[in-house]
Design a protein around this nucleic acid. Structure first.
Lengths: 333, 333
DNA sequence: ATGAAAGCGCTAACAA
DNA sequence: TTGTTAGCGCTTTCAT
């Protein structure tokens, strides 16, 4: 910049003013001359320096476990669009669902390259987060219990799982395999969805057979393997509730491969209403957790907090209402 | 930092040394005291300032059109792992396949937050890129013709498409629909793959019927719509070569929905060997373009260039050999 | 309308 | 082993 200034015979201040469109502070003729020089030298402002000075970067960060299951990729895309509408860029980082990486993502060091940050918490817990001192606006997503001072957007896991299970029961299922189910009382996504599954059974006066609850990660390959496992073990079931659409898609494959008809022999329900679920054969019945509302909320919360910084708006919690999207993998009751 | 220094009764330099683990330059006792003070104050280094000073950020950027088709999400994940092994973080940005956004991504302003950058070029052309003056190491991916001064990693689109089409012809297909095919002689991905398709036909002495070449974007929904379109128009075909696995998956759905058996009535081949393609019903035969090699190459190229900056290593071009992965959507010939 | 001075938070280079 | 000086490239403030 100094070089431009010298060459144009003005001060760096004037160059700065030109670059920042402070047109009232610089005459048209100088403006032209400076612009010409900038062009001639191919000069580009150094963002790092500007950020240091101004304390803003124009980008927000998003940390998710990864791009699989598809849910996260779609979330990233949805948020990217929304932030773009506010003139903010979105940079996506992966935590690999590791607790260390999640905390690391919130480290002030990292945060200092962002104006705001969205963290998907799947492994960290409240105690970890509590310790952090964060000056950058942050909104948390995910179902973990979370310190009250953070804005928090989450889905109704229990409610959604209850809906899915009820639908299955209503259409005649009595032995519903739960792919990714766990026992435990933490507030993690699998535990919450398992709770919904149990609640629906209880409400219908049905017993849950423990062998139907199988552990399973959330990608397509995992759903496939878990379902094959169940079949190979000879466990009987007439429905599958998979904790994610991706694992449901894997289940569909395992079922087809072993000659079980869906939905006639086995009904299948997923969770997330991922784009892909419309195009499987049969098309997947699933729980729509309110993806659009959540993306809207995340964006609005963060944008507002960035704008009002550091005025301490009280933290908010947002949880949209889930609903069932019925397609072909379940029977109409 | 100044605050820490004062409080601990040392100079900022000593604090800096402690933070950067320059253990030889600071006594154990001071180190302890400084660390205690840091902890007490909850101090965190300001990365923006450090970056300004040292000119490195420890993160590399990746710009892709989006996370759909899945190919990009998987690429991002693969690169994330590899860069992590080199102690580099990966931040992913979306260009939405817009030419402006692609060029924008390479703007020095943006680049200055990264030590290196990977850009997937799908819309920009050589002339655009030629103009850019970039001081950050960049590797380009994608099939567009690209200025020679950039490292460039690409897949053999023509060869892969030829392989896929040959396979189809060999197993009896005579009317192969090309989903996403185009006429044109630019070096874009669709044009290249279309060329491979034609070459295979020519080599077998087969005529290409123009009505079989249908335009189609690359996501699942697009493949579905295009295939439905073909069917609704009453165009006869005995095979589908989809330009991406994602669109092939959509085609599978359209075929199933209209009662066509795969591979008996219609064979289907995709391109990319996306994770998902193993789990469709039937499992998708596809072209594996050398994803792992490409990710390795991208990472190595960039890391090397970052390390050797600014020594001008000559630009390199890397194109792995594609191969067919035969699964259930084609007939064994 | 333009410029000079000061300093954002940090580290390289040198001095003590 | 520790401290001092200078300056990364920019913008804010205040003077001209």
């Amino acid at each position: 910049m100094t070089e431009v200034a010298q060459r144009a015979g003005v001060s760096t201040m004037t160059v700065s003013n030109v670059l920042n469109g402070r047109s009232q502070r610089v005459s048209e003729s100088t403006r032209r001359r400076v612009l010409a020089t900038i062009d001639e030298l191919g000069y580009q402002v150094n963002m790092t320096a500007r950020n240091l000075r101004v304390g803003r970067t124009g980008t927000v960060g998003l940390a998710v476990p990864g791009f699989s299951p598809d849910y996260y990729a779609e979330l990233a895309a949805a948020l990217g669009d929304r932030f773009a509408a506010h003139g903010l860029r979105l940079a996506v980082e992966r935590t690999g669902a590791s607790r260390a990486a999640e905390l690391d993502a919130l480290t002030a060091a990292r945060l200092s390259s962002y104006d705001g940050f969205v963290l998907s918490v799947v492994a960290g817990d409240a105690a970890d987060l509590e310790k952090l001192r964060v000056d950058t606006p942050v909104v948390l997503i995910g179902e973990r219990a979370v310190p009250a001072r953070f804005d928090h957007v989450l889905m109704d896991n229990v409610g959604g799982a209850r809906l899915a299970t009820q639908l299955l029961i209503r259409s005649g299922a009595r032995r519903i395999a739960l792919l990714g189910g766990v026992v435990g009382s933490e507030e993690s996504m699998p535990e919450l969805r398992t709770r919904g599954y149990r609640e629906a059974h209880d409400a219908a006066g049905l017993h849950v057979a423990d062998e139907l609850i199988v552990s399973c990660e959330f990608a397509v390959a995992d759903g496939y393997a878990a379902t094959r496992g169940l079949i190979d073990l000879g466990v009987a079931f007439d429905a599958v509730f998979a904790l994610t659409d991706s694992s449901a898609i894997g289940a569909l494959r395992a079922l087809a491969e072993t000659g079980r008809g869906v939905p006639d022999d086995v009904q299948v329900v997923g969770f997330d209403n991922v784009d892909h679920s419309r195009f499987t054969t049969p098309a997947l019945t699933t729980v729509e957790p309110g993806n659009a509302e959540m993306a809207d909320a995340i964006c609005e919360l963060l944008v507002e907090r960035i704008a009002s910084r550091p005025a301490p708006v009280p933290a908010r919690v947002i949880m949209p209402q889930p609903r069932i999207v019925q397609r072909e993998s379940t029977r109409r009751s």
